[in-house]
Simulated scan of single mutants.
Amino acid sequence: MIRRNGLDAQALEAIGIDLAAVRDKLEATFGPGVLDEPGPVRGRVGFGPAGKKVLELSLREAIRRKDDHIGDGHLLLALIREGGPAVDVLRWARIDPEALRDEVDAAL
């Protein structure tokens, strides 16, 4: 979860990532309150805990790569990093998640 206060926010701010700007961009793209608790928010459903976790991990992937944006490749890297149902689907389709991760990372 992206927090405005706490160690995560301080660590990100130390390397030049402004959480307020990240929140503003997410709200501009997905609507106000997107990072609030899940449930109806002005006629739509916000991100649940799993969605928030993937967004956080995609931000961490962008930071790891020293990228200045979060794109679809970062989201895919985050889904693979998290494991869970997305990786189960990849394995079901006989796709090696680690090999895919390496390919996506190289393509970015």
Rank of each mutant, 00 (worst) to 15 (best):
G16R: 00
A11D: 07
A107L: 10
A28Y: 04
I70L: 08
E37T: 14
E61Y: 03
H74W: 11
E61W: 10
D8P: 10
L57T: 09
P97E: 01
G43I: 12
N5A: 12
R60H: 14
P49W: 11
A20T: 10
R94H: 12
A86N: 09
F30K: 05
P40S: 08
L12M: 08
G43T: 07
L57A: 04
L90E: 08
E27R: 05
G33V: 08
I17R: 04
L12C: 04
E61M: 06
V34P: 00
M1C: 01
E13D: 07
K52G: 00
L59F: 03
G51R: 07
P85M: 15
E56L: 13
F30S: 02
K53W: 02
L57E: 01
V22T: 04
V45H: 08
L90G: 13
G43V: 12
L76R: 15
I15K: 02
I80D: 00
G83D: 06
G46Y: 11
R91L: 12
D24G: 05
I2W: 06
A21M: 09
R44F: 01
L75V: 06
I95M: 05
I2G: 02
D36H: 05
T29N: 07
G83P: 02
V54T: 06
D72W: 08
A99P: 03
P40W: 02
D67H: 14
A99C: 03
L7S: 02
F30V: 03
W92P: 14
I63F: 04
P85R: 15
G83A: 14
G51D: 07
D36Y: 02
